[in-house]
Design a protein around this nucleic acid. Sequence first.
DNA 1: TCATTATGACTGACTGGTCAGTCATAATAC
DNA 2: GTATTATGACTGACCAGTCAGTCATAATGA
Lengths: 215, 215
Amino acid sequence: MKPAAKRSLKTEKRLPNREEKSAARREAILAAALDEFSARGFAAARLDDMAKRAGVAKGTIYLHFRDKEALFQEIVRSLMGPFVGTVEHAFNADIPLRTLANQVVELFVREVFGTRRKDIIRLMMTEGPRFPKLAEFYYREVLSRVFNAARKRLQRALDTGEISHKALVRYPQLIAAPGITAIIWTGLFDRFEPLNVRELLQAQMNILFGEGRAS
Amino acid sequence: MKPAAKRSLKTEKRLPNREEKSAARREAILAAALDEFSARGFAAARLDDMAKRAGVAKGTIYLHFRDKEALFQEIVRSLMGPFVGTVEHAFNADIPLRTLANQVVELFVREVFGTRRKDIIRLMMTEGPRFPKLAEFYYREVLSRVFNAARKRLQRALDTGEISHKALVRYPQLIAAPGITAIIWTGLFDRFEPLNVRELLQAQMNILFGEGRAS
DNA sequence: TCATTATGACTGACTGGTCAGTCATAATAC
DNA sequence: GTATTATGACTGACCAGTCAGTCATAATGA
């Protein structure tokens, strides 16, 4: 498949070969598609616009993705999949709950709110009901894994007396809720009443787990 | 079909006159449109389907609403507008905070989650970003009024020592967050992991305001 | 090394279908 | 009788997905 390219020349800047170019285009298409889906929603996003934005002909999209829906699903997969491990790892670390809470806030602010993952989550909420397959993927590969890790840690915290609210083990949604709310709020109302996302999340963590210093 | 009815006979069941029929149709169209918008989202919902569902010809819709977008906005207005007063009233009542919290939970479960208002809120979250005018209307006529009432009550509670978390006055979002989250969760993941909405909301209220009896 | 041939990634005009909105005609209320 | 309201066939714009043809790059071989 890939025979000797320009041979191991020292040149950092080899010309990209076919395979590399193909991969680069695939990425460009994914990025462009996310922009369009975010801006217009699934139904109203135009393949023509994505192609133009990615600097590619429309037909090219169909060389990489079966159809519009597959493209959409692949965006979710490619951005959220790798992120789950990071979150699980954070929950499994052997650190005090309050420190963990601060880390989770930072992780959310930096790796979700500060990236396109915020848009992915918004799209999941927005389009999920019409893509049961995607919702299932998201539940199985993302949510249930994150929630399991969270529940395990919360149960331990309950056992050791780090927390007293039993409800948290049953409803980790209470930890996620301000993040969800922040994503929606900023998308709709930030121009009327801007929201300090980090403060909102920290406030909930303070209430749930007691006061702790800002990191 | 039905010419001059029996004139002012005592008959409770007069034939509806023009005005009444028109109003009834308008309502039927609004209801049908909400069903379609909820099921498919704004862009993908079809006027033909709404007409069929409302038992009306497509053209009739345009006798009542300028276009698809106006119809959508009118749904939000007509369902949420009257509801705001109820909520403000609840917040202004002179009752203990913990009782109020229970009432708010009940109000949400019964008047939002148990009605189409749940769908309206979901649609606002879903379609709001693409309808800045609607988001503004919603903020001005619904959210800011509810939040103001909530903030006033929470400030009083803080002054009297009913609560100790100052953050609640700044971020009433923390009270709304589980409701938002519940609406999204049930729309996406209820088939994998059903959510007891009332319990979720009560759990948050318990954490925010201390344990209280279920109403 | 360089000329020739083979490959398959890429293009974009095109097709078939969809759907918001219109309007001439029909039904109905007054 | 006539003004108002309702109808639904129609139109024009739009867009997902297709495919015959192009051409840069890779493979071959002399």
